[in-house]
Design a protein around this nucleic acid. Structure first.
Lengths: 346, 346
DNA sequence: GCGCATATTGGCATTTCTGCCTATCGACAT
DNA sequence: ATGTCGATAGGCAGAAATGCCAATATGCGC
């Protein structure tokens, strides 16, 4: 394994490239950043294919380099892969293996994990991918320990990240490793992104992953979601999970990234949003149904009130199609009201 | 003003286009989404310039349409503008004004606000842009009420968003307005982004904006940041801000998006991260210095402990350059530990 | 100036959160 | 078998967060 410069970053272009994921890589590694006053990354686009390549959004782009350059890079980013079932060309795999053998760092975003998986280099290692593909990845590459619940996995020389935006998190993580926290924070700030975000992509998945994980909270959360109308106290939830309140709080944070109460409030607001759109019920009825009016405890106050307070109801809620000044539905307003709540969805 | 279909989305390409911002627009509006089972947006790329256009990342792309198509769209997105000082061509401005007169919605991301500003359509309206450009925008277009503290501004027919990633928030907002919260949430989930995020970009700016806003917390926050070592209680902060604890809590949430205590803890961890990199102090000394060991109150527990606990120190902190199994510096680990804390920076 | 409506503020009670301390359990070496 | 170490669980007290209500300020039309 020869030493190689991780600051030489190459990313793979291919026919059908997702421009968003590519954009992330460019934004983090590919922009000149004189203000940071460090020896910043050198960035190259490479492809195994010649000529203009189609991308999402209906535009075409052309890589400036071929696999040879890719292979010489110290950090290689595979941002997605058009069709997960399509095996990557052997020439590409060879280049990746060779680069890795020389000490290069392999990075994948979203379905790019399938390319890394195909090299065999992930065997026995942990990895992740977009939650839509997690199952497929795990079943097609059983040797890989797929963790669908995290935003990214750092296995040292191979790093994989979950869907789309999680690529930002991983790229920032890499910057943090290479240049330190301060630089990474500055990059994040310029991106107007939080410097780190976690709790895993589990938050963003529709159905909780790992339903039957030992001590998993998923069943409880599901139960809670369908009983939002009741005045659920954290203590009750803990009892239901057969844990002491303290342990429950700890587990809850581990698995969701928030406190039970914040999560609950957020669920209530989301539910309210949905009902505002899907039903013709009035604000009060909905608030009641999702447990917001009566709710014992805490979590909403002015924020939710701003949108749900019965006093303001006539202003926009007389009809659920009634539009606000800015063409927003009530649900939209609630959405903005929610915004201050910790963004955990599950 | 004729009715026009907001679902016809066009975005402007230009020489020097930021591929990241463009990617956002594509990802939200430009992907086929059969799974949503709605009449999704039609997406077009337009430009006033012919031929391949340079973009960030060193690739070239070509717009499929010209200004005529742009003008006919119902939603026009300007994702950035290469040089804020460069006046947009009159032909473009004309097309935008004309489209707007016909009822089209104008949307800007990042420095794209300068293009909208140049049309004059923003005069008297509220708007925002990337925090780096906010001041310039305000001074060059004094008639615009620039709000540099928010992620986006919805003025009905003109929507502006702050830097880069804030464009995602705005685009999701638009989807929420057009198709409702559920659809928007599904799009967000697929992006692995929170469905809404707020508290404003104020969180991400290095130096708090609006330092002298009436009742602004910025000075207090700055003071707190330089006195993290002390055992600051929320009550103390409130007193220092000359507010009752209750009012303080409310204001704090308004302006930062979190509770005082969460913010404080996050600041402590960030500070610890920095010190781990910049100084040769040991874990204990640093923890002490940023108020984590001694800290009265709450906020860290197992999360921070995971990285800072003196018991585990020998494992990775004997030398600050000492690497973990995954090539991470201690600061990096702390970063991951921080992750469960609400991502507010300020 | 007056009355009404709305927004802001402060205090209080309740719930929730969290650091810390102790107890328990299992692995492992002696 | 015994003791030590580490990890996890539970309990507790103090701090923090929040809904709610009452009081006060602010604004507005008359």
């Amino acid at each position: 394994m020869r030493a190689c410069d991780h600051r030489r970053v190459a990313t793979l272009l291919y026919d059908g490239l997702g421009i968003f994921e590519f954009g992330i890589v460019v934004e983090i590694f590919g922009l000149p950043r004189p203000e940071l006053e460090v020896d910043w990354y050198k960035f190259e686009t490479c492809s195994h294919q010649r000529g203009p390549l189609r991308t999402t959004g209906g535009v075409h782009i052309e890589a400036r380099h071929g696999l040879r350059t890719l292979q010489q890079a110290g950090t290689i980013v595979i941002s997605g892969w058009k069709r997960t079932r399509e095996p990557p060309p052997e020439s590409l795999l060879k280049a990746l293996r060779s680069a890795h053998a020389c000490g290069a760092r392999l990075v994948s975003i979203c379905s790019g994990a399938f390319v890394l998986a195909a090299t065999g280099l992930l065997d026995g290692k942990r990895a992740t991918t977009h939650w839509r593909y997690a199952e497929e990845l795990a079943s097609r590459f059983p040797k890989i320990r797929v963790d669908p619940g995290v935003l990214y996995v750092d296995e040292g020389s191979i790093l994989t990240s979950a869907g789309s935006a999680a690529g930002i998190d991983l790229c920032l993580h890499i910057v943090r490793c290479d240049y330190g926290a301060e630089i990474a924070n500055r990059v994040a700030r310029r991106l107007v992104m939080p410097p780190h975000r976690d709790g895993g992509q589990a938050q963003y998945v529709q159905n909780p992953v790992d339903r039957r994980a030992p001590g998993g909270l998923a069943p409880l959360l599901q139960w809670a979601q369908s009983h939002l109308g009741q005045a659920l106290r954290v203590e009750d939830l803990a009892r239901r999970a057969a844990m002491s309140p303290r342990t429950f709080a700890r587990r809850f944070r581990q698995q969701t990234g928030t406190t039970p109460h914040q999560w609950l409030t957020h669920q209530r607001l989301l539910a309210a949003q949905m009902r505002l759109e899907k039903t013709d019920d009035g604000i009060d009825a909905i608030a009641e149904a999702v447990g917001l009016q009566t709710a014992a405890g805490a979590g909403v106050d002015c924020r939710c009130r701003m949108a749900l307070d019965t006093k303001k109801r006539p202003r926009f809620a007389s009809d659920r199609r009634n539009r606000l000044s800015h063409n927003c539905t009530p649900a939209c307003v609630v959405g903005q009201a929610v915004s201050h709540v910790n963004p955990v969805t599950l």
